[in-house]
Design a binder for these strands. Structure first.
Lengths: 348, 348
DNA sequence: CTGAAAGCGCTTACAG
DNA sequence: CTGAAAGCGCTTACAG
């Protein structure tokens, strides 16, 4: 007894089907893989045999020879935080990552490729790399925003197809998808200016991640070019609580600000609260523009005017690029940059 | 320096390691799988050979003989909705499913088992079943709340180990994890009564799912036993918008209600808005109790008093049960019921 | 404690 | 268009 029979009885193998159809195993394989060269009559016989035996291919055996697993990893590489009670919880309840997962899943489905979602704190990197090396997946979608994250380079060194969610830190010949961060910040600045606001402030994301620094730079330099200088900025951590705290700091320093650009909707939701707790109305006293157009923008009171980032589409594009690289490993890396747009609601 | 296996380059196999270590392939296999019977000196030699060759086992080959994939599916079976612009989006940004995913991922990690997350609308059932039959995974965690969902029975019929997130509809010999829904509703009712409220109302979940009907029944019968009858109820769909709409209906019917039990925090957040839009204060005019203790409970204004359901722990327990069933397929199915608790914050 | 050998269930050149 | 045969890279009874 080499191995115990499969749960629920023996599964039929390709040999059973071949016997039932009176053909060779090779022919059954060709029918299953839609090889062109099977005679219609035989194809039909085989299909009937497949149906009658209830045959389902064994994926391990197939993978062993094709060297394809038909699955792909979505690695979400995020720094851990001192106050992180639960890293996994933060990742899996974050609306941004949720949208990414939804977009990637949807795009992969027509390819019959499945997604293994792997949140990765720095301490998990080793495990992730080992997993990828073992050939569990055909490629990886790597969500990494931190400039100093070593994972993109490590994954690339594995020689496994990979697509990043933003420009790689340093010269890595790897495909990536991004949104034009600067253009997005400019859209926000222009809106606030057009509303006649001149006492602007901003809550930016962490400066060691491009989405943080580029949105800040874009916002400030657009304003500077139009004569608005010295715009105060406080750094938040892309969480609701971080946005709320940052807004308090800003309000304490200058209670008279009349406009606020917040680098994410989640932070904007927190900021809205701080502003309102401070007794100021939105948008009458302070106009607020967020970034992302995630579902929280609609849940805010008032509904948030925000810079829309088509996250699901971007994730779908990442998946499409990855599939192309898997299909053709010598394909040149390329980047796809999405243009953001302004969604005007009630907050500005 | 280990030579990296370039694109198209050969990964070393077990034979390479065996040759490098001067032993047989079988011995290398034993070292890798921690078989007890390897002499320490040989074990060490083999380990050095593994390191120097950069060998990593091929998982497909291993799976083919062990019949284990070391991954598990998390199937989230949900009805689609007429107004569902994006099913995937709804699933992946739902805080409840996020907590489930986090809990399961964390519990599986020590087993070195990975999670394939599969949202499944009714139209996807066929695909899901096929995926499971192909042996991609060793077992399935099935999140299904709808009483008429055929998937639990279908998956069970596959003979693959499965653990459900609630009592199966009908007599299915399958393990499941649940929270004591009735006890939770009673906790809410008792709290509201203890606050002196007598004009109570409730927003319940869909009645064709146990979490919907049991919370409603538990709430009403607890009150009835204490002389409070005819409590109005409106059904919501467990979304924020659904809760808001339901609260409006309730308020229109009886503007004088002084307490509200809402069957999920997400719906409670919506209800809070409707109540406040209606010019009524929480908790002064209307006390509100939610259900779940998800992160949104803390984000509400005021922070929500709610019935805590330890979702992450429950998901971890599901994972533990599943691993046990995989390890020992003849293990008897069992159910594990968690007791809810009341978390008192500001809304009641 | 270790090795030779069989076998897991497929796919795919290679002939015919 | 079809089949016989080799081979993918492992694990594991079986002998020694």
């Amino acid at each position: 007894m080499i191995s115990k029979p499969g749960r629920g009885g023996q599964h039929p193998t390709m040999d059973h089907v071949a016997a039932a159809a009176g053909v060779s195993r090779a022919t059954v394989s060709r029918v299953i893989n839609n090889a062109a060269s099977v005679a219609p009559a035989i194809r039909e016989t085989v299909q009937r045999a497949i149906a009658s035996t209830g045959y389902v291919p064994n994926v391990a055996a197939r993978s062993l020879v094709t060297r394809r697993s038909d699955s792909v990893a979505l690695v979400i590489s995020e720094p851990d935080r001192p106050d992180d009670h639960s890293f996994l919880n933060r990742i899996f309840t974050d609306p941004y990552f949720g949208r990414v997962t939804a977009g990637a899943t949807g795009a992969l489905r027509p390819h019959d490729v499945h997604l293994v979602v792997m949140p990765a704190e720095p301490s998990d990197h080793h495990q992730v790399v080992r997993y990828l090396r073992q050939g569990h997946v055909d490629g990886v979608l790597l969500i990494s925003s931190n400039e100093h994250d070593p994972l993109p380079a490590q994954v690339h060194a594995l020689g496994i197809p990979v697509v990043l969610s933003s420009r790689p830190p340093g010269p890595l010949p790897v495909s990536y998808v991004d949104v034009d961060q600067v253009a997005g910040a400019e859209l926000a600045a222009a809106r606030l200016l057009s509303l006649g606001r001149r006492r602007l402030a901003t809550i930016n994301g962490p400066l060691d991640i491009p989405a943080g620094s580029q949105r800040l730079d874009g916002f400030r330099s657009y304003l500077r070019d139009r004569g608005v200088d010295g715009v105060p900025a406080v750094t938040g951590d892309f969480t609701r609580a971080g946005g709320e705290a940052a807004a308090r700091v800003l309000l304490a320093a200058d209670p008279a600000i009349d406009a606020l650009f917040v680098a994410s909707d989640l932070m904007a939701e927190g900021a809205l609260r701080a502003v309102q707790d401070h007794g100021r109305r939105v948008p009458e006293d302070i106009a607020v523009v967020g970034f992302d157009d995630s579902s929280v923008a609609l849940e805010c009171r008032p509904p948030l005017t925000t810079v829309r980032q088509p996250v699901e589409e971007m994730a779908a594009e990442m998946a499409a690029l990855l599939m192309a690289h898997i299909e053709n490993p010598s394909r040149s890396p390329r980047s796809v940059i999405f243009q953001p747009s302004l969604v005007i609601r009630d907050s500005a």
